[in-house]
Design a protein around this nucleic acid. Structure first.
Length: 430
RNA sequence: GGAGAGGUGGCUGAGUGGUCGAUAGCGACGGUUUGCUAAACCGUUAAACUGGGAAACCGGUUUCGGGGGUUCGAAUCCCCCCCUCUCCGCCA
């Protein structure tokens, strides 16, 4: 959520940003009416404060008053004030809720260097790293490899849980666990605190991070008869970890690496691009999350991207880096970099496919989650900045390893860095 | 799931209807003393929102787990919820 005072002072810029962000026109309407309501709310707010001030004054005077008649008068005034305050407060609450409801739909500001454009294809490719391997045999995609080596079983996944679910078997299990270990160890070495988070979270936390647990377009599963949803990413639980806290500046930056399962309804997604493990309802993810001061978030963001690149370089996977354009940033991100890894089995002759995403959310999430810090040597508190980034999304990491390391004989080589964790050099040998 | 006990400021812990944003201790910060350190002593020590002011600063509102209620007045009484602890049951 944006700061309403900032929005009022910079209304035109915020509106322009909404257009750049490719949000529905109704968001701009919401923005304007939020500002209009705020004018009304402010006046009401002062009336409420004045009423309460007099109420407190009367209550104190009543306690001190010994004369029964005077005391009676004070009590009468107190009763009137009480009724008046209740009415005004109700109105105030309504206005607050209306403003909040509208404001929360307004996306974060956009980094000045982020490419401006409405659709995905306007994101800017920053660099390509690594050269896609040339195969001297017919390339198979991970679905075929997974089936022939008995590593991934989508049929049984469908029978037991539905489309979009799968069973990992045999060496795929070792590969998945190896990738988790590999990523965790790298992140710990980079100074991140490892955490295994809950896979469910309260809806209020989801909302603070910027998810909408209820509503038609929701991407999350909610648990009936509870206030809980299955998390779509550990970003939710890691960010929620420090909700409503005030940190000392000296404690920042706080960097966590979380492991969780991720659940996504993927409403409305289908087709060739979502074949196999690419778009599934459940996967496991190693996720980075950081809390920083406003001054250091940009630097921390670059650091997360560097870690992501290091992971894929270490795995020997070609990739490209995208600076995501305004229209594709989503609500909370101020800037976002994606890594797309080379997937030889995708499309007709291989394609890059998204494997990581790292976002600088500035104070957008912190404002709603109530995460502040005390600047050293200064009075008061400020909002922290939050950042998140994928270390490894295991489902997509499996795709790139299986497809890039496939061999003419149908087996799959284990990338060197994973060998100690997998415990063997080749996958699929019986 | 059952029975009890609790949730108060950075921490520990007082406070059972009025002058309580809240005793005290610890910690932290500033100062005095000291060759240095320690000790001692003095002082300061929550946040959000908001009015005035160029600012220093001065006022107001809210906040004692969360939400509702009783009352002129609630940390204190009542109801619901959340969380923690102890015991019992169940259980990976």
């Amino acid at each position: 959520m944006l700061d309403l005072k900032y929005v009022i002072a910079n209304l035109e810029a915020v509106k322009k940003n909404c257009l750049d962000r490719n949000v529905p026109a109704s968001v701009v309407e919401d923005l304007e009416s939020a500002v209009a309501i705020e004018g009304e709310r402010k006046g009401l707010f002062h009336r409420v404060e004045e009423t309460r001030r007099r109420q407190n004054e009367v209550a104190q005077a009543t306690g001190k008053e010994r004369d029964a008649a005077k005391r009676g008068l004070l009590i009468d005034e107190g009763k009137q004030l009480k009724a008046a305050a209740a009415e005004l407060e109700d109105q105030l609450k309504r206005l607050d809720a209306e403003i909040h409801e509208r404001l929360r739909r307004v996306p974060n500001l956009t980094h000045p260097d982020a490419p401006i454009g409405p659709t995905e294809d306007l994101s800017k490719e920053l660099r390509k790293v690594g050269v896609p391997r040339v195969f001297d045999f017919p390339v198979r995609d991970h679905v075929e490899i997974g089936k022939s080596l008995d590593l991934i079983d989508f049929e049984t996944g469908g029978k037991v849980s539905g489309t979009g679910f799968y069973f990992l078997k045999n060496d795929a299990v070792l590969l998945e666990l190896a990738l988790q270990q590999f990523a965790m160890h790298r992140l710990i070495a980079a100074g991140f605190t490892p955490v295994i988070t809950p896979d469910l979270a309260r809806n209020s936390i989801l909302e603070g991070i910027g998810f909408t647990p209820r509503g038609v377009e929701t991407q999350v599963y909610s648990v009936e008869h509870t206030d809980l949803s299955l998390v779509g990413t550990a970003e939710i639980t890691l960010g929620g970890m420090l909700a409503d806290t005030v940190l000392d500046e000296g404690a920042l930056p706080l960097k966590y690496v979380g492991l969780s399962h991720c659940f996504r309804t993927e409403a409305g997604a289908a087709g060739r691009a979502s074949r196999g493990l690419y778009r599934v309802h459940q996967f496991t993810k190693v996720e980075m999350f950081a809390f920083t001061t406003p001054e250091t978030s940009g630097e921390a963001h670059a650091g997360m991207l560097a870690i992501e690149e290091d992971l894929f370089q270490s795995l020997g996977i070609p990739y490209r880096v995208l600076d995501i354009c305004s229209g594709d940033l989503g609500g909370p991100a101020y800037r976002k970099f994606d890594i797309e890894a080379w997937m030889p089995g995708r499309g007709t002759a291989g394609e890059y496919g998204e494997v990581t995403s790292t976002s600088d959310c500035t104070d957008y999430q912190a404002r709603r989650l109530g995460i502040r810090y005390r600047p050293t040597g200064q009075k008061g508190t400020k909002l922290v900045h939050t950042l998140n980034g994928t270390a490894l999304a295991l489902s997509r990491a499996l795709i790139v390893v299986l497809e890039n390391y496939q061999r003419a004989d149908g087996l799959v080589d284990v990338p060197d860095v994973l060998k100690p964790y997998v415990g063997k050099d080749v996958l699929g040998r019986r």
